[in-house]
Simulated assay, not measured.
Amino acid sequence: MQSLSAKDLTLGYGETIIIDELDIKIPKGEITVFIGGNGCGKSTLLRSLARLLKPLSGSILLDGQEIAKMKTKEVAQKLAILPQSPTTPEGLTVYELVKQGRHPYRGLVKPWSKADEEAVIQALKSTNILNLKDRTVDSLSGGQRQRAWIALTLAQKTDIILLDEPTTYLDMTHQIEILDLLFELNEEKKHTIVMVLHDLNLSSRYAHHIIAIKDKKVYAQGKPEDIITSELVHDVFHMKCNISCDPIFGTPMCIPHGKGRSIYSPQQKPTKLSYMN
């Protein structure tokens, strides 16, 4: 199983520093989620881990090797990334899209092999879209389309999968559907999965490990039940809340303060909820 880590990592665009001398180690075989306010550098960090953004300083290690010194094909055989809101050429079928995941294993003259075909079919089966393989990607629903892109990453046959906001623009049902799929892939195939998510409650429900980013650094990291507190939410998201316990999963559940409609009179309002506060 491949390992992924960063040491003294500094990232930025021009003279603007986004991430400053950051150290992280992604747990093998687990789901890790990056959280933080808008513009804190979550997606920038994820892109750098996939070698899509060159660090200003520091290093990223993939299976003990500096990723910057590795060949592109070698990286692609160990790590796959699904960017935010990917686009496909019009008319491309699901099968044709998922086939792209086999590029790291093929040369200019190497013919399509039985192993390639098996990898594609297995990826389609794992994401429950084999019956859609002849449909065009642009004819699919948002959830189906996201499954097709996840199938492409599975066809790559990597231990590590990075996903940048995989539930963006999906309704609640399809968000849960995609996160359930990723959770099952982790449970059954032991993929190391790293995601950027905005929903704190879903992050707490699906992640084994959470890394909170603030002020260009790691503010906190660990199991959701160990680090998700009202203090963290206030400091990282600048929002007051109570942290309760998810009644179904037992994970931390953020209840924001705000000016929503109350069904209680002032005398009936419930007492303060607590989880880890």
Rank of each mutant, 00 (worst) to 15 (best):
Y169S: 08
L163I: 07
D164V: 10
I161R: 08
A148R: 11
T173K: 14
K157I: 14
M172N: 09
T153F: 05
A151N: 03
I161M: 15
L170G: 07
W149D: 01
L162Q: 09
T158Y: 01
T168H: 00
T173Q: 10
T153P: 10
L154V: 03
I161G: 04
L154T: 03
T168R: 06
T168K: 03
M172Y: 11
R147P: 04
T153V: 08
L154W: 04
Q156Y: 01
Q175H: 03
I150Y: 01
I176T: 10
T167R: 12
L162Y: 04
R147D: 01
R147I: 03
M172S: 09
D164T: 08
A148M: 09
L170D: 02
H174K: 11
R147F: 00
W149L: 05
I161H: 09
L163S: 04
L154P: 03
D171Q: 12
P166R: 12
L162W: 05
I161N: 10
Q146C: 01
K157A: 15
T167K: 08
Q175E: 02
T173I: 08
Q156N: 02
A155T: 12
D171C: 12
I161A: 10
W149M: 00
T173P: 02
A155K: 14
R147Y: 00
T158C: 12
Q156F: 01
T167F: 11
T158W: 05
A151P: 07
I150C: 06
R147G: 02
H174R: 08
Q156M: 04
Q156V: 03
T153N: 05
L162I: 08
D171W: 11
L162T: 07
Y169Q: 08
Q146W: 00
W149N: 00
Q175G: 02
T153S: 09
Y169P: 02
K157Y: 13
T168C: 00
Y169C: 02
D171V: 13
Q146F: 02
D164S: 13
T168I: 08
Q175R: 09
T168W: 00
A151T: 06
T153H: 03
M172D: 06
I161L: 14
A151E: 04
A151L: 06
Q146K: 05
